[in-house]
Structure formats: structure tokens, C-alpha cells
């Protein structure tokens, strides 16, 4: 039985990896090798990140490829503009 905290930790590790490598395209197997963690657990974390819209998933199963979805950024929001 995997502790929930382990899955969240893994989610965070994966998030940090994709934030540091925003152009990376990775499979769950590839991430498993990079982080040295169980592939099933990694897949669970990656799918959760997909549900949270942090990652984008293309394909299914072990061949699915994940990539980082850059957050929406707006640098020029005028404080005095009217809605």
C-alpha cells in the first residue's frame, strides 16, 4: 500500500522536473528511469498531474507522452483598467 504522501511527493518531483525542463517530452517509463522510481507509481502521479492540467498527455498506456503545460501568464495587467 503506497502512502498518499509518497504519491504527492512524486507528483511534486515530476512537477519540478517538467518546470525545469519545460520542453521535455517524456513517457512514464522515461520518468521512472530519470527519477529512479516505480513506473506504476510514476504513471499514477503523471496522470494526476494531467488531471490538474499541469501536464498534457498524448497517447495511452505506457506509450503515452507527457509534456509540461506552461501556466497562463499575463505580465501587463493594468491595475487601473476597467473590467
Amino acid at each position: 500500500m503506497v502512502a498518499e504522501s509518497d504519491v504527492i511527493t512524486l507528483q511534486m518531483e515530476c512537477t519540478l522536473f517538467f518546470e525545469n525542463n519545460p520542453y521535455a517530452l517524456e513517457t512514464s517509463t522515461g520518468m521512472s528511469k530519470r527519477l529512479g522510481r516505480n513506473a506504476n507509481l510514476i504513471e499514477r502521479a503523471l496522470n494526476r498531474l494531467t488531471e490538474l492540467s499541469i501536464l498534457e498527455k498524448n497517447g495511452q498506456g505506457t506509450r503515452a507522452i507527457y509534456r509540461y503545460k506552461t501556466p497562463y501568464i499575463q505580465t501587463e495587467v493594468d491595475m487601473n483598467a476597467y473590467d
Partner: peptide, 16 residues
Amino acid sequence: EKVQMVARGMESPGGE
């Protein structure tokens, strides 16, 4: 007079 926004699930124009 400008601020920066970083968001997920809250895109323009509602986000702005």
C-alpha cells in the same frame, strides 16, 4: 501600475 499574473484554470478575460 501594472501587475503580473500566473495562473492555471483561470484564463483571460476572467483571469485578468
